[in-house]
Design a protein around this nucleic acid. Structure first.
Length: 602
RNA sequence: GCCGACGUAGCUCAGUUGGCAGAGCACCCGCCUUGUAAGCGGGAUGUCAUGGGUUCAACUCCCAUCGUCGGCUCCA
């Protein structure tokens, strides 16, 4: 459901009304004037309300609040709208500082009670149900009885900064979910359970892809042999694709003197998210949080003619960023990451083609991975951020943003624009994707950099023999290994296509008599470059098949007397399809073709 | 970093008012010699996250630290 439809739906009113009823129930828990209320909008699947309370809420409180909400619902109190003047509003909420701030915002105009910009006349209104009055533009259901008492549930308590600013006071937020029917609620809770099963953190453990260890440190994943197999398949794809698009690979160190990051301009902006420096021989050395400046130095290591451009330097570089502890999230936000990085140096004339070529690389990858739902987002600067978040050069911002728009429009690639989301050195196209369980991620990025080439004094000689400054593109179509594998685990629910699979094939002997043969086949497959294992454990064949199924191994080779006698295998795929009497050489050839083709089907 | 919850075997989890640390799966051993999603029997498995404290006695109560999770903030 798109936003506009949602905002006009009954469900939206139900959730909005449930938020009011919840606030009412919370207010009743405290002495008059003790509980301060902030805002409480509907959100996807539910609603929340923010409170400033004399004590912290506990999970037990949620049960009591739910109970009280059901009592309010039973009263069938009508929701009544009253349009008031700013003065009346201030009088009503004299002891509610957050509401007063909102009213002042409404009075000043241009901003609604959630801080979003609004157009047209600002009308201040109340919604009243029973004893409870809230500053609200509505709409709501007719009366509290329209909320199904069996179709809502309070879910969690969280801290949330007033107006989303960490300099402000942190409020207590209660999240709830509300639906029209009990069945809808049950379905939603079931979906949440299902999402847990498809969570990359669980799948990563079950499928033995990666692990974290407290002694190693938070946000520092360890890739197992199986995980590394997946990563290497991705790297092969990247190297092959980039080769086809004219990239050259480079390699750079993990450490550098601070001078480099001072020149790049990163240090003043990002020192907080870098690991602290190591002092050595009178210099401060930093572990690299990005690869860019190294590539710039490689560009600068020799002269360039316009005839050499574009120069495209690629590297799967490992970077380290000190993400704040609360920001870490499985493989999706980590402190060590290997980026599918590359920098393209080109003339302004070449910009459009280069930019679109990067977009085309995305599209190639999305096709291979079967990623159908994505949104390209053009992130632009904001004037208020100039000189702070953004390089202070408005002319270049406006110019490069238009260059990106033109490139996207001319290529016919749809995108949305979002202001105040750019990198500090230029506008960018981020690609948002959604995993199978609905989680949104920025996967790929394609960034224009008009600032750094000048800082690094990068040059090329044009056809008139004059020195020019190139443009730079930063791009990471496959994101980082960490984020991509995390995403793909959820995207495929662990059922990797054969070419990406951590284990292509598992050989299963039927009895002890076939162990040697099974081992021989697995060794031969491994030597031929496949990820092959033999299950030689003390268990029945059926149990071994079950184990392989649970690991989502695409192919199982079951071998017994028959197969040993005639040099064949019984091929079973993870969809349960079975082919008996396949010559081993034939299977090997089929697997080789399957892996090379990157075919999604078994 | 902030608010809150949680941390017991490799995994998933139980553990009563403070009184001998448990189950299933996995693992190891044995039996069976098996034909496409769990054969049977036996066995080993713990710094109850870490460090303090209270107590005759702490997995259990208190404090601190570390880590994870749900959010907020952030994501070059």
């Amino acid at each position: 459901m798109c936003n506009e439809q949602y905002e006009e739906s009954k469900l939206y009113q139900i959730r909005h009304s449930a938020a009011h009823i919840m606030a009412q129930a919370v207010m009743e828990m405290f002495e008059p004037g003790e509980a301060k209320i902030a805002i409480g909008p509907p959100i996807r699947d539910g609603f929340y309300y923010d409170f400033d309370l004399p004590r912290n809420l506990t999970p037990d409180d949620l049960k009591a609040i739910e109970k009280r909400m059901r009592q309010i619902i039973a009263k069938k109190e009508p929701f009544v709208k009253t349009v008031v003047s700013a003065e009346e509003a201030k009088e009503q909420f004299a002891d509610q500082p957050y509401k007063l701030e909102l009213i002042e915002g409404l009075e000043a105009g241009g901003v609604d009670e959630y801080g979003d910009e609004i157009q047209g006349e600002t009308e201040i209104s109340f919604y009243t149900d029973g004893e409870f009055v809230d500053l609200c533009r509505g709409p709501h259901v007719e009366n509290t009885g329209e909320i199904n008492p069996a179709a809502f549930k309070l879910q969690s308590i969280a801290g949330a900064y007033w107006r989303g600013d960490e300099k402000n006071k942190q409020l207590q937020r209660i999240y709830g979910t509300a639906w029209e029917t009990k069945e809808d609620l049950k379905a939603h809770l079931k979906f949440l359970e299902e999402a847990k099963r498809r969570d990359h953190r669980k799948l990563g453990k079950d499928l033995d892809i990666f692990t974290f260890d407290e002694e190693v440190g938070p946000g520092l994943p360890l890739w197992t042999a199986r995980g590394t197999a997946v990563i290497e398949a991705i790297e092969n794809l990247a190297y092959e694709t980039e080769r086809n698009h004219g990239y050259r690979n480079v390699r750079t160190p993990h450490l550098t003197k601070e001078d480099l990051f001072l020149r790049s301009g990163h240090l003043p902006y990002y020192a907080d998210s870098m690991y602290p420096p190591m002092e050595m021989d009178g210099s401060n050395y930093y572990i690299k949080p990005m690869n860019c400046p190294f590539h710039h130095k490689i560009y600068n290591s020799k002269q360039h003619s316009y005839r050499d451009l574009p120069v495209r330097l690629g590297e799967y570089g490992t970077c380290y960023r000190y993400e704040k502890s609360g920001e870490l999230f499985g493989l999706m936000r980590v402190r060590s990451m290997q980026m599918n990085d590359a920098h393209i140096y080109c003339t302004p004339d070449q910009f459009e083609q280069e930019f679109i070529d990067v977009i085309n690389i995305y599209l190639e990858y999305f096709k291979i991975f079967g990623i159908e739902k994505y949104v390209m987002r053009l992130s632009t600067h904001s004037d208020k951020g100039l000189g702070k978040k953004y390089v202070d050069n408005k002319e270049m911002w406006v110019k490069t943003e238009q260059m990106v728009r033109d490139a996207m429009d001319n290529a016919g690639v749809p995108y949305v624009e979002r202001a105040d989301e750019a990198a500090f050195y230029g506008p960018k196209i981020d690609v948002q994707v959604w995993s199978a369980i609905g989680r949104e991620f920025t996967l790929a990025t394609n960034q224009v950099d008009f600032a750094v080439p000048e800082r690094f004094e990068m040059k090329y000689t044009d056809e008139h023999g004059e020195e020019q400054i190139p443009l730079c593109l930063h791009r990471a179509p496959l994101s980082t290994h960490e984020r991509l594998v995390g995403f793909l685990l959820e995207h495929y629910a662990g059922k990797f296509p054969v070419w990406l699979s951590p284990e292509h094939v598992r050989v299963i002997p039927i009895t002890d008599a076939h162990i040697e043969y099974a081992k021989k086949l697995a060794d031969e497959l491994y030597a031929a470059g496949f990820h092959a294992e033999a299950d030689l454990g003390n268990a029945r064949m059926n149990a071994k098949i079950r184990a392989a199924q649970k690991m989502k191994v695409p192919y199982m080779l079951v071998v017994g007397d028959q197969e040993m006698a005639d040099g064949t295998v019984s091929v079973r795929n993870r969809d349960g399809e079975q082919m008996n009497g396949v010559a081993f050489a034939e299977f090997k050839a089929m697997l080789a073709e399957k892996v090379a083709s990157r075919d999604a089907e078994l």
